[in-house]
């Protein structure tokens, strides 16, 4: 049992997560990010379910959330396989790469301008080089044959 103000606050958080995820789904073109946003929407729903469940003191909401977790896992597994397949075909993780499904006479939508600034991408942390592979030794392999 939780008090009503907590319920309302939790519902607000759930709604906020849901709407943010929605905006992400609609705008981001990277398939992976789109899936992240979908998961974000699921989180919003989970929060809402749990809030109501606790408010009513009923376990149904929480049980449902467990199932949401399960289904999200399944969804991620299957969807990621498809994402990989799509990547294998187009070499991109771009949702707009599948524009060929459009009506025949329509022109293709092309990104007119791309921001120049961050074309290089982030610089990832690197490790210092270590454990260099030693050069092959022909005589060493010859020796081995006699073993």
């Amino acid at each position: 049992m939780i008090p009503a103000p907590l319920l309302i606050n939790a519902l607000l958080v759930g709604a906020g997560l849901f709407c943010l995820g929605l905006v992400g789904i609609l705008t981001r073109r990277n398939l992976i990010v789109m899936f992240l946003c979908a998961e974000l929407m699921l989180q919003g729903v989970s929060v809402t379910l749990v809030a109501w469940s606790r408010y009513h003191g009923d376990w149904g909401g929480q049980v449902l959330t467990v199932f949401v977790l399960t289904v999200a896992a399944c969804e991620a597994a299957v969807a990621l396989v498809f994402v990989l397949q799509a990547f294998a075909r187009t070499g991109r993780l771009d949702a707009a790469a599948w524009q060929s499904l459009r009506e025949e006479t329509l022109p293709r939508v092309i990104d007119r301008e791309l921001p120049e600034g961050d074309a290089a991408g982030p610089t990832w942390p690197t490790l210092t080089p270590a454990g260099v592979r030693p050069p092959e030794d022909a005589s060493h392999t010859l020796e081995r044959e006699h073993v």
Binding site: I25, E103, L106, V109
Partner: peptide, 17 residues
């Protein structure tokens, strides 16, 4: 109506939203 079929998945989703 044909012009709506752009092949862009997210436009369809946007229409649904």
């Amino acid at each position: 109506a044909r012009r709506l079929q752009s092949g862009l998945l997210q436009r369809y989703a946007l229409a649904g939203v």
